[in-house]
Design a protein around this nucleic acid. Structure first.
Length: 997
RNA sequence: GGGCGGUUAGCUCAGCGGUAGAGCACUACGUUGACAUCGUAGUGGCCACUGGUUCGAUCCCAGUACCGCCCACCA
């Protein structure tokens, strides 16, 4: 049955994909030869919520290319697949789904029920992206699919937490953290995007207490006085007026002469019945604004540091949703206590945190509404540093003076949650941290020493820079979907301080608690893990974890200690940070762990170098004292054809599945490989994908031609190149060997683009453009059998070499041609060498193709009809040229459309052709336009003259001859000789034309 | 403000001390024994700018301009 005219991607991909899955071609170790090296890649786990986008398609194409290449080479290969539970993202999606379907909200249904919903959702749609990976042709070990919340993963995560806790690498503390008021959770620094927005800065007066005043002197840069006045206030500036309610002080720089006299004095905090001190601190910049800064320790990272240094109380103003607090006692009570504390009364951190110093008026207001209210109220008090401004009415054009609160419009950098897109609030809360400073060392050393290599090299600089300045990593999240922190809190009771217990299992924790409480009680203790309801009952909320919990006395005289588990979950990146060992079965010492770890290569987006790569490095080194991967390949974001980021709002998102539907997975994969140059930007153009689809068609049809000519008939697949006699066969065998070497070298160096390029040029430029054409006459000649064998071999090699990049079409072709022992996916990668290259065959073919090019070019320019066969005259011919002609006559004649070749002189009205060692004439009396031929030859002469000029110039420069390497000089000399030879021939031809007039 | 990268044909990108490359687009011709998802032949480049190193620079170095990305607490 003859082959179809075109590759049917849609049906072939479905058929081949299921064939591969049935045969488990991607199973760990499949096609491995005994004693071969291991090669392993961990897939960057996509979010279970996700679907395949172009970044995934690109990233996974590269991984699959490497995996298939190594697998075909007989290496013991593992491509570990799996998905990430993606805490915030998944919780967000499920909450949205619930809202859409009118189900009760997360809070209404409670933690347990909500988590059941998430699992339900995960089970029903979590497989989407896995199936999409299959459509791309990814050859993972599907049976090993992992999930960061399943299998051994929860245990592994818990064990790591407990170990790190016990080593003092994880600690809990009340810190100022980035708080997302939408998701009501802390997030890490990395999850905050600082974006420049149009903002405002207000200037307020804080009046000195007791009606005091001072002389304020402003000087210019030269020290000359430019302003001198008595002031009873200090001027401060802020972009966030609502936070002034929590101010603890006003700070000025110690060297700032303007305020030296009032440092230590108190000022009235507007809108609040509190006095705060003016303090000196290095932080304020005297040259910026008024030089005085209000200090709100609980709502600003800089102020927090100042407050810590000065021992100022940290007054929290907002609740978890970013509304002004409405909890706790009334304002009067709170402010009275705050005054006592200011006067020196002892107060614990948690007591201060419990104080709600938001005046009643603002309580419950959204932070932005509170901002407006505070500004309005301060303005009403006349405490805005205001200025008379001339306002022009845009309609009447009349001018009038207004007194406006002094507000500058300016660009400010504002922090936004990368998921929620709401403004992040610095918030004082209890959180868990990894003491990264303690584990960063080995991660730095591993890259410095080259144990782990990051490509491109610029990635290493980024990596170093971040790790050298690393901040503690906030790993607790106030979410429900995730790995719950394995810490339980015991009550303060029976003369014992409350205590936290960290353990891998509830039993471990129970034992620890028994030991702690039991030693005192000397009686049996039942440790129970109470429910949320229990805590609701005894009135302990989230913030009450340290408070006395519960201890109940049972009737029989024993005591029941109730421990409460920390409700927080871990940052998703904490668990995905363990992906390499976790997926291999750790903490069990599995065979896979022994074989495939450390993994060979990580291919991932440069955007998650900090989130993931650096953390995997730190975590793996901290936990198993080994690097997670030897090579890290970082790539950029896939952009659209114009270089724009793909985004839904821009409407320029290219869906890889639509591309696969339209052009086939192979075309997309080839395009991905072709644009994967190291460090470049990735601009994806569908025109380019179409081009590579065409490339597939081209290969398909070359095979179709071969099949029609029965090249595979009677031959089983041969791995060794056939012995060839015909120059064209020798040549294409050599070209195949060169291509193999190029592809190997390219993939070795992660130059997917060069591998793709080499294959494209070989298959299209050599095999299809020349070899198939040569084969046509050869099939009718004495070398027919050899040519068939050669063509079968060359096309087999083409399929093999292309398979890692274009697996579907090559597997399909493999099945439709020849008798095959194995599927192509498991066929051995060839090992032939460059000694298959025959230099004399190479030279001869380049002479022949050069001659054909010249003749074709001349014919076209002279408007010789394509179908017209010409007789050609050899005017001069060297022995070498004569021999080359002799061996390739049939090919040249056919491709150049030459009828006969005779010896002779150039007749009147002929086209002249000059090549190395020979000159020819195509008699076309009456057919050609002499003027046109003259122009053609002149143009060629001009080009030659320019080249000759350049070459002569170099040779005439004594410095060049003296300093340049000998081979370069020689090359220039031989080059010049050849060009001169051609020029002579062309001159002769031109002279002849001149004679004819 | 700091760091990194880019600037090569109309477009998207390779290249790299020794005569500028590919794909797409464009022009002309073409039902040539696989392929119109094609063939043949062409058009098209002061390789951003200015200096320096060198026998020789698109390539190395320094600076300038423009563009992009990452990081950063100026109230």
């Amino acid at each position: 049955m003859p082959m179809e005219k075109n590759f049917d991607a849609a049906s072939a991909e479905a058929r081949i994909s299921s064939l591969w899955q049935e045969r488990k071609v991607g199973a760990a170790g499949a096609n491995a030869r005994a004693g071969s090296p291991a090669f392993s890649i961990m897939i960057p786990p996509p979010n279970v919520t996700g679907s395949l986008h172009m970044g995934h398609a690109f990233n996974n194409t590269l991984q699959d290319i490497l995996i298939r290449w190594h697998r075909m080479r007989g290496h013991d290969t593992l491509w570990q697949v799996g998905t990430d539970h993606a805490g915030i993202a998944t919780q967000m999606v499920v909450e949205r789904e619930l809202a859409k379907s009118g189900a009760p909200s997360r809070r209404d249904m409670g933690r347990e029920a909500f988590l059941a919903k998430v699992w339900e959702w995960k089970d029903q749609s979590g497989g989407t992206i896995i199936n999409q990976l299959k459509r791309l042709g990814a050859s993972c070990d599907w049976d090993r699919e992992a999930f960061t919340m399943s299998g051994n993963f929860p245990d592994a995560v818990t064990k790591v937490f407990v170990d790190m806790y016990n080593k003092g690498l994880i600690y809990r503390g009340k810190r100022l953290v980035n708080w997302d008021p939408h998701f009501e959770t802390a997030i890490s620094d990395l999850e905050v995007e600082n974006i420049e927005v149009a903002g405002h800065m207000w200037h307020f007066k804080y009046l000195l207490a007791g009606g005091e005043s001072y002389e304020y002197i402003e000087r210019d840069a030269e020290g000359a006085v430019i302003l001198r006045e008595r002031r009873d206030y200090i001027s401060i500036a802020t972009t966030r007026p609502e936070t002034m309610l929590g101010d603890g002080a006003v700070a000025v720089h110690p060297s700032d002469a303007r305020y030296a006299a009032i440092v230590g004095k108190m000022v009235h905090l507007p809108l609040c019945d509190r006095l705060i001190p003016i303090i000196a601190d290095e932080y304020p910049d005297p040259t910026f604004g008024s030089g005085a800064v209000k200090i709100t320790g609980a709502h600003d990272f800089n102020d927090y540091q100042v407050a810590k240094r000065a021992g100022l109380p940290l007054y929290r103003l907002m609740d978890t949703r970013g509304h002004m607090r409405s909890d706790g006692a009334g304002y009067d009570v709170a402010v009275a206590r705050a005054r006592e504390i200011a006067a020196g009364a002892e107060a614990t951190e948690s007591e201060i945190d419990a104080l709600n110093l938001v005046p009643e008026k603002y309580r419950g207001m959204d932070r932005f509404a509170a901002r407006d209210a505070v500004v309005a109220d301060i303005n009403a008090l006349g405490l805005c540093v205001s200025t008379l401004m001339t306002e022009i009415d845009p309609e009447t054009g009349s001018e009038h003076l207004t007194r406006e609160p002094y507000v500058e419009s300016k660009k400010i950098m504002q922090p936004f949650g990368d998921r929620s897109k709401v403004v992040i609030e610095p918030m004082l809360t209890d959180q868990w941290f990894v003491d990264t400073a303690k584990i960063v060392g080995p991660a730095l050393d591993a890259v410095r020493s080259g144990a782990t290599k990051i490509m491109p090299e610029s990635g290493e600089k980024t990596y170093f820079h971040w790790l050298e300045n690393i901040e503690p990593w906030c790993i607790s999240r106030q979410l429900w979907w995730g790995h719950q922190i394995p810490v339980w809190y015991g009550p303060t009771s029976l003369n014992l301080a409350g205590k936290e217990f960290c353990g891998a299992t509830e039993q471990d924790v129970a034992n620890e608690a028994k030991a702690y409480y039991g030693n005192i009680l000397k009686t049996e203790i039942n440790v129970e893990f109470p429910s949320e309801e229990f805590f609701a009952e005894i009135g302990v909320g989230d913030d009450g974890r340290d408070a006395a919990m519960a201890i109940s006395f049972n009737e029989n005289g024993s005591h029941t200690i109730r421990l409460r588990r920390d409700p927080d979950v871990l940052d998703t990146w904490f668990s995905s940070g363990l992906w390499p060992i976790g997926t291999l079965g750790w903490p069990d010492q599995t065979d896979e762990l022994a074989k495939y770890f450390p993994t060979s290569t990580l291919i991932t987006g440069a955007d998650i170098i900090f989130f993931w790569v650096a953390r995997m490095m730190m975590m793996q080194l901290a936990v198993v004292d080994d690097i997670p991967f030897k090579t890290v390949y970082l790539h950029g974001l896939v952009r659209d054809a114009k270089g724009k980021k793909m985004s839904k709002s821009l409407g320029n998102v290219i869906d890889p599945l639509e591309i696969i539907d339209e052009f086939g997975a192979d075309a997309l994969r080839f395009a991905n490989a072709a644009m994967a140059s190291l460090g470049g930007t990735l601009k994806l153009d569908t025109a380019r994908i179409a081009g590579y689809r065409n490339f597939g068609t081209k290969l398909w049809n070359a095979c179709r031609f071969a099949e029609m000519n029965g090249v595979w008939e009677g031959h089983s697949t041969e791995t060794a190149a056939p012995a060839a006699h015909a120059t064209a066969n020798k040549w294409i065998i050599g070209e195949t060997a060169k291509t193999l070497a190029e592809v190997n070298a390219a993939l070795e160096g992660y130059r997917f683009d060069q591998a793709a390029d080499a294959l494209y040029k070989f298959v299209w430029g050599k095999v299809c453009d020349w070899y198939v054409e040569f084969a046509k006459p050869l099939f009718d000649g004495p070398d027919a059998n050899e040519t068939r064998k050669t063509m079968a071999w060359v096309l087999d090699q083409s399929m093999i070499l292309l398979h890692p990049i274009m697996p579907f079409i090559t597997e399909d072709l493999w099945g439709q041609t020849g008798a095959r022992a194995k599927l192509l996916v498991h066929t051995d990668w060839p090992e032939f060498r460059l000694d298959l290259v025959d230099p004399s065959a190479d030279q001869e073919m380049s002479w022949a193709t050069g001659l054909i090019d010249e003749i074709r070019s001349a014919r076209t320019q002279m408007h010789v009809p394509v179908g017209l066969k010409l007789d050609m005259i050899a005017v001069t011919m060297s022995d070498a040229a004569r021999a080359a002609w002799g061996r390739n006559e049939v090919l040249i004649k056919r491709l150049a459309r030459i009828e006969t070749l005779t010896q002779g002189t150039s007749p009147k009205g002929a086209i002249s052709i000059a090549v190395e060692g020979a000159s020819f004439a195509l008699p076309l009396d009456g057919v050609i336009d002499i003027a046109e031929e003259k122009a053609r030859l002149s143009k060629a002469m001009d080009k030659l003259a320019k080249e000759i000029g350049g070459l002569m110039g170099r040779l005439n420069n004594p410095a060049f001859v003296a300093s340049a390497p000998e081979e370069v000089v020689d090359e220039v000399r031989t080059n010049l000789e050849a060009r001169n030879d051609e020029a002579t021939k062309l001159t002769l031809a031109l002279n002849r034309l001149a004679e004819m007039g």
